[in-house]
Amino acid sequence: MEKSPKEQLVDTLKLPKDMLLGASILTMTGNHELWVENYKGIIEYTRESIILQAKTGQISICGCGLVIDYYTNEDMKIIGTIQCIRYL
């Protein structure tokens, strides 16, 4: 896949992609905690599935007993048994 001029500039200058391109950052602790930064909104929210809108697509989190423990406009913490994370 060809990179856009903006992506090429970010790569060349070694700048942080999350800040300049709005890329999402996912940080997991085991399979029971997930921090998501730089998301745009919540599309679906059930105990088995959470789908988030990111700048460049969607992020699907699947598991059991999923709960959004904390969220702001910029980040959120998901707890439960996380079985799968997919980019749609």
Rank of each mutant, 00 (worst) to 15 (best):
1 M>R: 09
1 M>P: 03
1 M>A: 00
3 K>N: 10
4 S>C: 03
4 S>K: 03
5 P>F: 08
6 K>I: 09
7 E>H: 03
8 Q>D: 12
8 Q>M: 14
9 L>P: 02
9 L>Q: 02
9 L>T: 03
10 V>C: 09
10 V>Q: 07
11 D>G: 08
11 D>M: 11
12 T>M: 08
14 K>C: 07
15 L>C: 05
15 L>W: 03
17 K>S: 14
17 K>H: 11
18 D>L: 07
18 D>I: 02
20 L>N: 07
20 L>D: 07
21 L>Q: 13
22 G>Y: 05
23 A>I: 03
23 A>G: 09
24 S>C: 10
24 S>K: 07
25 I>N: 06
25 I>Q: 12
26 L>Q: 04
26 L>V: 02
26 L>P: 01
26 L>C: 01
26 L>T: 00
28 M>P: 11
29 T>Q: 13
30 G>V: 13
30 G>S: 08
31 N>L: 13
32 H>L: 03
32 H>T: 04
33 E>C: 05
33 E>F: 10
33 E>W: 06
34 L>T: 02
35 W>L: 12
35 W>E: 12
37 E>T: 11
38 N>F: 02
39 Y>N: 10
40 K>C: 06
41 G>F: 02
41 G>V: 00
42 I>Y: 15
43 I>M: 14
43 I>C: 08
43 I>Y: 08
43 I>F: 07
44 E>I: 13
44 E>L: 15
44 E>Y: 15
46 T>K: 05
46 T>Q: 06
46 T>H: 05
47 R>K: 13
47 R>D: 09
48 E>A: 04
49 S>E: 08
51 I>R: 09
51 I>E: 10
51 I>K: 08
52 L>C: 01
54 A>Y: 09
55 K>Y: 00
56 T>F: 09
57 G>P: 15
57 G>I: 07
58 Q>H: 15
59 I>G: 03
59 I>Y: 04
60 S>R: 06
61 I>N: 04
61 I>M: 00
62 C>W: 02
62 C>P: 00
62 C>V: 11
63 G>H: 00
63 G>I: 03
64 C>A: 04
64 C>R: 03
65 G>C: 03
65 G>K: 00
65 G>W: 05
66 L>F: 10
66 L>N: 07
68 I>A: 06
68 I>C: 09
68 I>G: 11
70 Y>W: 07
70 Y>R: 04
70 Y>F: 13
71 Y>G: 07
73 N>V: 08
74 E>C: 13
76 M>A: 09
76 M>Q: 09
77 K>C: 08
78 I>F: 02
78 I>G: 05
78 I>Y: 00
79 I>C: 14
79 I>P: 15
80 G>F: 05
80 G>Y: 01
80 G>N: 09
81 T>H: 09
82 I>Y: 02
83 Q>A: 01
85 I>L: 06
86 R>G: 03
86 R>V: 05
87 Y>S: 14
87 Y>W: 12
88 L>Y: 13
88 L>P: 14
